[in-house]
Design a protein around this nucleic acid. Sequence first.
DNA 1: GGGTAATCGAGACGGTACGTCGTGTCTTTCC
DNA 2: GGAAAGACACGACGTACCGTCTCGATTACCC
Lengths: 198, 198, 198, 198
Amino acid sequence: MTKEPKRKSIGATRNPASAEAILTAAEQVLIEKGYRGFTIDEVARRAKAGKPTIYKWWPNKAVLLLDVYLRQKSIIFQNTGKFEDDLVAFINAILTNWRETPSGQIFRSIIAEAQSDETSRAAVTKFATDRQAETSFLILQGLKRGEVCASVDPIGVARWIGAYLWYQLLTDRLSLTTDELRNDVEILLAGLANKPPS
Amino acid sequence: MTKEPKRKSIGATRNPASAEAILTAAEQVLIEKGYRGFTIDEVARRAKAGKPTIYKWWPNKAVLLLDVYLRQKSIIFQNTGKFEDDLVAFINAILTNWRETPSGQIFRSIIAEAQSDETSRAAVTKFATDRQAETSFLILQGLKRGEVCASVDPIGVARWIGAYLWYQLLTDRLSLTTDELRNDVEILLAGLANKPPS
Amino acid sequence: MTKEPKRKSIGATRNPASAEAILTAAEQVLIEKGYRGFTIDEVARRAKAGKPTIYKWWPNKAVLLLDVYLRQKSIIFQNTGKFEDDLVAFINAILTNWRETPSGQIFRSIIAEAQSDETSRAAVTKFATDRQAETSFLILQGLKRGEVCASVDPIGVARWIGAYLWYQLLTDRLSLTTDELRNDVEILLAGLANKPPS
Amino acid sequence: MTKEPKRKSIGATRNPASAEAILTAAEQVLIEKGYRGFTIDEVARRAKAGKPTIYKWWPNKAVLLLDVYLRQKSIIFQNTGKFEDDLVAFINAILTNWRETPSGQIFRSIIAEAQSDETSRAAVTKFATDRQAETSFLILQGLKRGEVCASVDPIGVARWIGAYLWYQLLTDRLSLTTDELRNDVEILLAGLANKPPS
DNA sequence: GGGTAATCGAGACGGTACGTCGTGTCTTTCC
DNA sequence: GGAAAGACACGACGTACCGTCTCGATTACCC
């Protein structure tokens, strides 16, 4: 076993190794013990870091959580040529990612944390809004191809999709079959309203 | 100052006065100090109740929160004769209630709490499912009147609506104008898909 | 398994079966869990008695403890014809009894309990004084036989012996060999003072 | 009123000011409220210290009590030239100290506490043994001067004296006159046995 | 190239909440 | 009216975490 050299200060500048160790430890703790066990003490212990070091760079737990979440790999848009398939693939990718990687647990924790603290909530809300903008690209894609009704507001739709995703996450419904998912998407696509046969 | 008689046991049976005092205190604490300050200790202090009494009847914090939430007045369905108006009124009533009464803060806390604990989450998920069943009455109403497409799954729609409501709550978007809300509802009603002019 | 009939009230008079059950339960609890685990709750549970019943008849824990102690069998004086042997046998009988029956544990608890409470201490002190009077019979026996110096105060000696016994109990020295004990007794008998050869 | 600066950590090392404050508070609580009121909570409150700080350095209540006891001033041996006088003075000094300072109350509590817990009892027994060793110096002093019989075991005698002291403390007999005390000591010095005139 | 100045680990500190247990009082219901 | 049953207000238990602090060591930067 190689003698692991103790990590020390590297002088009057931030030690990236520490930051890295802290984020990794935070992620591990979150996976292993969940949000309940996600304490600064435990992260510091795991990272072999001092608590003040953590507090210095991540003043809130929410900020640290967001940083951990952002280190996760992001979703890549599909372009199959058919809007419905793209949308289903997109949602499915996110749900699968949440289900099969720590991301789901992490994001759940972020949302929980944000409910206790005004500024955290603002940060998460901003994050959500940014994601809506990204999602709206997908809508615009469909709109450009004439598959989406021109009168539709892309951001508004992105909000519906974001809402759907959060709800699935928060109510433990990440394990849908593709058919179930396609059914749900179908509702959004076709709309509720009874269209009179023209 | 009138000497307030201390609340005592009323024998080997649950004292409703205590339950009442605890729920009231819990609500007050939640309003005044938020979820962060919502501790069993504080509730017990405020209610002049023993902590064991609280733990006896509400094993989880989530359960207590749900009980507090359920004491709030509930939403009554509208029936204006037009499905879209009913739906908008329904959503608006909930959002307004969340915005203008403690209910919003309380329910936010419930969702947060549920993310820390498996059993709490199950309880909240069950609650959500029950509400979807209620909401689906609205859909069925519209369906009976022929305003809703017959092929639509009422529970599935109720889920979309629930998702929308939670999302608005969790991302601090409770103060929509009626027009904004109507726009959002419109998307769900009309659907995204471009309907070719037949 | 015979269906054990639940013990009920026998009307407006003290139920001796309850008293018996409580004392027995108290003794068992003390043996099994020690003084720390000796709680009224536990005794009530074990005796299948209501707590108020216990409090009614034994207002203090110390009183209950004393009652339990007094149910134990008492020591019988020896009379071997030689004072030293009688004394050693007497002390040894008590130490053995304390070591091999619950009595030691019980009496230890009584002493501990008595230190917290003024009236309990008075009760125990009275008990100790009574025992000294009994012990002094032994001294008088020796005195009558001319083995004990006539100028000696029997009660004073009984006090020394009581002190010795308590000390052995409280400092976990109940397992002396007879020789060790005889040595200790020898000191008391012969005295410290250097007797000049007359 | 001068704004008292809050006591803080002084880094990763024990803060003596805290230790001091805790011991002082513990002593005060014991004096004012007795052993019944001597709770870690109360000590922490009084010392303005956190409970974990107390538990960190004093794992048992008995250990804390012993530390409090040891802060009291100790007894100084006399050397009057006469063994009996030295012994009487020694015992009297201890009894007086127990009677007139908090030491008596404190030591009583220590003994009581030790009866509940095995490890505490071991600590107290060790303390008692150490004191016996000290006391035996007094015996050796007398032995050296030829006042004490050479065949006597000093530790054995010290044990008798320790027993006597504890017994007086535990049975509320701290207020003896010098004559009463001298009588008791006389018994130990002269011994019980009837010495036949040679 | 020597003296700041900032960073690091470590961990103690005053607090506060946790969830459990025991206390002694009370009331209801049954005998 | 005694006894069971058990709920109640209270408060201590011992533990965990919070966010702050002080320390001594360890560089990087600036004069």
